[in-house]
């Protein structure tokens, strides 16, 4: 019994020593979406939030064409949890990414429309990201669609 108690205390000490400092709550949301033109190399740059990301992979994934990014605009917004939502005109999906070391890693790919979005736009509606396209609108989280009309 005594040994068990010592082991228990030892485990508590180890756990306390290994715990990571966490600051919370944190809100990463952008108040409005950014509409970012894609440059010749496929990069988009958001000056206000100091983000630069290569979107060639995104366009290839969506349109199966590695040069389809040319002359396009990407719509990007970040939700309060820190996930990035990206889409563009004629995309059928909204892509959700999370930030990693020097890259954005896909968290989810939310299917929206078989015909593709005509004029998509994101609005910040904490805790959701509202996606609108003409008269359509729906709420998204990084997990997928949260109700809304279509």
């Amino acid at each position: 019994m005594k040994r068990l108690l010592i082991l228990f205390l030892f485990l508590i000490l180890i756990t306390a020593a290994c715990s990571v400092l966490t600051l919370q709550p944190a809100n990463f949301s952008w108040p409005i979406e950014s509409v970012l033109p894609v440059d010749n190399e496929g990069k988009v740059t958001e000056d206000r939030y100091s983000i630069e990301v290569n979107t060639v992979g995104l366009f290839f994934e969506e349109l199966q064409d590695s040069l389809s990014y040319k002359g396009k605009e990407v719509r990007m917004i970040r939700d309060n949890q820190g996930f990035y939502f990206l889409t563009a005109s004629n995309f059928k999906n909204v892509y959700v990414f999370k930030a990693d070391e020097g890259k954005l890693v896909q968290e989810n790919k939310i299917f929206i429309s078989e015909f593709g979005l005509q004029a998509p736009a994101f609005n910040q509606r904490n805790p959701y990201i509202e996606l609108i396209d003409g008269t359509y609108k729906m709420n998204l989280t990084y997990k997928g669609i949260e109700g809304g009309s279509k």
């Binding site: 409005i32 509409v35 736009a121 994101f122 609005n123 509202e130 609108i132 008269t135 359509y136 609108k137």
Partner: peptide, 8 residues
């Protein structure tokens, strides 16, 4: 029905 973009 016609939703407006905040960005707009």
């Amino acid at each position: 029905l016609s939703a407006q973009s905040d960005r707009e």
